[in-house]
Simulated assay, not measured.
Amino acid sequence: MKQKFREELLQKRRKYDRAEEDALKIKERFLQLPEIHRADSILLYYPHKNEVSTLPLIEELLLKADKKLLLPKVNGDEIIPIPITDLSSLKKGYAGILEPDGISYPVEKIDIVVVPAIAFDINGHRLGYGKGYYDRLLKKIKGLKVGFAYDFQIVDKLPAEPHDIPVDLIVTPTRIINTKGGE
């Protein structure tokens, strides 16, 4: 059932024609969060397979000297957060996703992590690609966990397993969902 649902949503995401416009709306909503102003370090993802594009956000945050911007690098079964200062040095890594090289940033010092998903439910549970990379990472993150999604990627309930780590907020083009209750 999970696989069929995953395939249906991926198909919908591939055909979505407002992705660029919605990614900019998501970026603006995200930048208005009060936690952004207090954050020293932010881990974003590099967009892959029609995920909400973080590129406009990455480019904007790279201009802010007061923020340490991190991107993930897959190393074995783990995601390693690595600081970046530009996008030109990224190289193809796991699954063809562009990744940084460099020295790992301490996971416990990450203030905000932004994660992609195929779907989120209103409780913050995510449906990913099924490899568990982000669940293993999110277990170690003490900071704010944020999901980026198009509105059609939000569902009422996803099957959750004990190892699944929910996000605290989900940012869509039209709303911010506080998964701990309230919008």
Rank of each mutant, 00 (worst) to 15 (best):
E21M: 13
G143I: 12
L63R: 15
G130M: 12
P116T: 14
V107D: 01
H48V: 00
V171L: 01
L87K: 12
I118N: 14
K91E: 14
T54M: 06
V167Q: 07
V167H: 05
D121R: 03
R175F: 00
S53C: 13
I84T: 03
I97D: 08
L158Q: 07
K4N: 06
Q11E: 15
G102R: 08
T54E: 07
T172S: 10
Y150W: 11
E60W: 07
N178D: 09
L44P: 02
R13F: 11
E8Q: 14
K139L: 08
S89Q: 09
K109G: 07
F30W: 04
V52F: 00
I82V: 11
V167S: 11
L137H: 01
K91P: 05
V115K: 04
R29W: 13
D164Q: 09
G147V: 00
K92S: 13
F120T: 05
K157P: 03
L10I: 12
I42V: 15
F30G: 09
Q11T: 15
P166V: 00
I154M: 06
P83F: 04
I170D: 03
R14T: 11
D40E: 10
A65K: 15
D101L: 06
P166A: 10
L90F: 09
G132N: 08
I110S: 05
G130H: 04
N178C: 04
P47K: 00
E20S: 09
L70S: 04
F148N: 03
F30M: 07
A160F: 02
L44D: 04
I170R: 05
K140N: 01
Y16Q: 05
V115C: 10
V155F: 05
I58L: 15
Y46E: 00
T179N: 12
D135I: 05
A39G: 13
I82K: 13
I177L: 05
N123F: 14
K142F: 07
L9K: 06
P81Q: 10
E20H: 10
R14Y: 07
I84S: 10
T179V: 13
A95V: 05
P162G: 12
R175H: 11
L44W: 02
F120L: 06
Y150H: 15
G181C: 05
I112L: 06
Y94S: 08
F152W: 12
L43G: 10
P72I: 14
R29P: 02
V52I: 14
E20Y: 04
G147E: 10
I176G: 03
L62H: 07
H163V: 03
K92L: 11
H37T: 08
I165L: 07
N178T: 02
L158E: 12
E20L: 13
R175L: 03
P100W: 06
L71D: 11
F148E: 01
S89P: 00
A23E: 10
L71I: 08
P81N: 02
D135P: 03
D168A: 13
G96L: 01
A119N: 08
I118E: 07
E78I: 00
R126K: 01
I154L: 12
